[in-house]
Design a binder for these strands. Structure first.
Length: 725
RNA sequence: GCGCUCUUAGCUCAGUUGGUUAGAGCGUCCGCCUCACACGCGGAAGGUCGCAAGUUCGAAUCUUGCAGAGCGCACCA
């Protein structure tokens, strides 16, 4: 027996050695598995693409949880004999990374991005990204993740950029990407558009003003936007305003003098709210914009990109809206236009990354049209026939509705449909510098869309970059070599399994379905299992401001990766939030040691006994109980009850195997009956061997380490040994 | 406002299709360094499974209502 068994289990020394051995064997790569005979060449494929972590620093326990879950699944499938591949990667996360680096530079050097210039800033951001990437990849290795590093991808690498530009061009050619003046979420602080999903709503106490607008009283929380309001809107069924007709014009005294206003009757008005009458500011309000679009009304800009009032505001021009508000209210009061004011609580939109208060603006941007019908040439999605006419929205809906994308959690399914049904066109251009540059060139009146710059003089490329989710949305197939028709693509796509946090169900999952559906006529993955967010013991999110972050590496140093994996997986129903409890991790470190001691006992007591002896009846019974466990655990994993599978094995190992079987074996092993001894020795070795198999997806390191010391091994590594049937 | 989720031991959480004395980790108390393991062993305390009603032979598990916590979406100017 190796000497190391004489001491308590030492994860730190073992884990790095084992991981190096795995990596060196090449067996994370399915092609290598086939070559080495570990997997039959005609075995069914099973693929997972790692949700690429953002290169914005280092990993947190949330990533550790995600890695544990996927690694358990992929290791199980590999042991089932499938051709498994788990593809690693990282995400440039355009806006998140750039704003992170910009903040750093601002703090340390007092410079902003314009001081540095585009080239220099991008260089600095890329350097930071590279550094994070290295940190992150080493962290993932420490977790024991059995990723095929030979297929590593980065959203901003050359291959992925090719996929992005190609995808853009194809969608543009199909009329699904267009450039247009539409209202977008403008972040005056970050000086960029952001998507609906990058908005955080914050409650704000404000004042609600009632203003005299000719014969009407209108309500508003934003008097500073009202300068240009020349449409007064009410519901067509509102009896109170029956005498006013749609299109009728009225003269009235307004903030900066007399104006002509037009009455608009529109059903979008809520009669119950305020006075039932409002004026609209289409340039700075989503709702107003919709009304203006529908009724073809004029739109006028009041506030500029920096949140300052434009000349239309007259004497208030150039003021920041926040300081202008009080002054404008005062003027209204003086002019007798202020009827009353009352306190009011509402949610204001702020930018997630910069904290800036969102000011809706009409801007010329690039959009993905989710409602425009197009002909899908090839489709494998049930309910959408090849050659039929569909829309991106229908595609996203049908993929899940038809169960082509299996979403077993009913709650998340509902929430997905709810989101899809309310979806608006997706603004994909961002006014930042780090990311995939929009593959569009302008030459005078001409527009050129292509994967490379057009030949000839006088073309300038669009300065904007794409929303980071555009490249992430291609992830399941860009990682497999698309747009080339690679063997990987035909073998491993659609991927088998995806497990994102519910936070990015809409941001990412739906958009992967969109892209994969349009470009391949396939779903991106067959099963999506949404998991929860890891929180601290008080149920709070991990954040820098609370300083409650837990570094997975600290946990690994203290307890080992196996213990961390178990601590995260066991007792955490997938989908609900996970409270991170260090004491739990500690408990599973003890469990690892327990297993270690079981192995020591068995290896020590079976060395001088013939372990090929036939089993006794009693021993066969114990073995068949183990088979029941195996069956149970197998079903649990198949149905993604990973947490239950792990707990069952835990319970078996400690309270059945160690407490009962081992204890009862002691007198037999030390007894005089040679037959019984041999039989029992054989039983224990078999049990240990099979248990290691079952436990391996959850605790890969210690199980592999013990396996390497087993008297007879079926495979070079437990990692590629067969799952017991 | 609409939707979703949660409420089980002192703490953090499991409990798969309703079925025997409701589980795990940590914590607490008592006794043990028993020749695999003190990262351990033996024993103990601790839960009217948020509240109320209903369905059922039987409910932590299904239905309804109520209370509390959290999340998502949409924002009403």
């Amino acid at each position: 027996m190796p000497e190391k068994f004489l001491k308590p289990y030492d994860p730190s020394g073992t884990e790095s050695r084992i991981y190096a051995a795995w990596e060196e064997s090449g067996l994370f790569n399915p092609d290598e598995c086939v070559k080495q005979g570990a997997t039959p060449s005609d075995a069914p494929p099973y693929s997972i693409v790692l949700p690429p972590p953002n290169v914005t620093g280092k990993l947190h326990v949330g990533h550790a949880y995600e890695d544990s879950l996927q690694d358990a699944v992929i290791r199980y499938e590999r042991m089932r004999g499938k051709r498994t591949v788990w593809i690693p990667g990282t995400d440039s996360a355009a806006i998140a990374t750039q704003s992170r680096v910009e903040k750093d530079i601002q703090k340390k050097e007092g410079k902003n991005r314009h001081d540095l210039g585009r080239e220099e800033l991008v260089r600095r951001v890329a350097a930071f990204a590279k550094e994070s990437e290295n940190t992150i990849l080493s962290q993932i290795r420490k977790m024991g993740a059995s990723l095929d590093w030979s297929r590593y991808a980065y959203t901003l690498d050359e291959k992925r950029n090719e996929a992005v530009t190609e995808a853009f061009k194809r969608m543009y050619d199909a009329g699904l990407i267009y450039r247009g003046h539409r209202i977008v979420n403008w972040d005056p602080k970050g000086q960029t558009t952001i998507s609906d999903d990058e908005i955080v709503y914050k409650e704000e106490k404000a004042t609600f003003y009632y203003l005299k607008y000719g014969p009407f009283t209108i309500g508003t929380a934003r008097p500073e936007t009202k300068f240009g309001d020349k449409y007064v809107v009410m519901h067509p069924d509102d009896r109170r305003y029956e005498e006013w007709k749609d299109g009728q014009t009225i003269e009235l005294e307004w903030i900066n003098g007399p104006i002509t206003a037009t009455v608009v009757k529109d059903e979008s008005i809520n009669m119950e709210f305020g006075t039932g009458v409002m004026t609209i500011t289409p340039w700075h309000s989503m709702i107003d914009f919709d009304i203006a679009e529908r009724r073809e009304l004029d739109k006028e800009q009041i506030i500029d990109e920096y949140g300052k009032l434009l000349p239309i505001a007259g004497e208030f021009a150039g003021m920041k809206i926040t300081e202008a508000r009080d002054k404008i209210v005062e003027k209204l009061r003086v002019k007798g236009l202020l009827v009353k004011e009352e306190p009011y609580t509402h949610n204001i939109a702020t930018a997630e990354r910069t904290g800036g208060i969102i000011e809706p603006q009409i801007k010329l941007q690039w959009f993905v049209d989710v409602d425009r019908p197009f002909v899908i040439s090839h489709s494998e999605i049930p309910g959408i026939a090849s050659g039929s006419t569909t829309t991106l929205k229908a595609l996203m809906h049908t993929a899940v509705e038809s169960d082509a994308v299996h979403m077993p959690q009913e709650g998340f399914r509902k929430s997905y449909f709810h989101w899809i049904d309310n979806l608006r066109d997706w603004c994909i251009s961002r006014q930042i510098w780090f990311g995939h540059r929009i593959p569009v060139w302008y030459g005078g009146e001409q527009i050129y869309v292509g994967t490379k710059a057009p030949s000839g003089e006088g073309w300038t490329q669009d300065p904007d970059v794409l929303d980071t989710w555009f490249s992430s949305a291609l992830w399941t197939f860009s990682t497999l070599g698309w747009p080339e028709k690679t063997k990987d693509l035909s073998t491993f796509h659609p991927t088998s399994f995806m497990s994102p946090a519910y936070e990015i169900l809409n941001l990412w999952v739906s958009r992967m379905i969109l892209m994969s559906g349009f470009h391949l006529g396939q779903v991106p993955f067959k099963t999506v299992l949404i998991h929860g967010v890891v929180r601290d013991k008080q149920g709070r999110k991990f954040s820098k401001s609370l300083d409650n972050g837990v570094d997975p590496l600290d946990m690994i140093d203290k307890y080992g990766a196996d213990a961390l994996r178990m601590g995260l997986l066991v007792g955490s129903a997938i989908g609900s939030d996970i409270s991170f409890d260090e004491s739990k991790v500690k408990g599973y470190k003890h469990f690892a040691n327990k297993l270690w001691n079981i192995a020591r006992f068995i290896l020590d007591n079976t060395q001088e006994v013939d372990i090929s002896a036939p089993l006794s009846t009693a021993d066969t019974e114990i073995l068949s109980a183990h088979e029941v466990l195996t069956k149970d655990v197998t079903i649990d994993i198949e149905e993604f009850r990973i947490y239950m599978a792990a707990e069952k094995i835990y319970h078996y190992v400690w309270h059945e195997f160690a407490d009962k079987i081992l204890e009862e074996s002691k007198p037999i092993l030390s007894g005089a009956d040679q037959g019984a001894r041999a039989s029992r020795a054989q039983l224990l070795v078999t049990l240990l061997d099979r248990t290691l198999h079952l436990l391996h997806p959850f605790m890969p390191f210690i199980t592999e380490e013990i396996y390497q010391s087993m008297p007879a091994k079926e495979a070079a590594f437990l990692m590629v040994a067969r799952w017991p049937a």
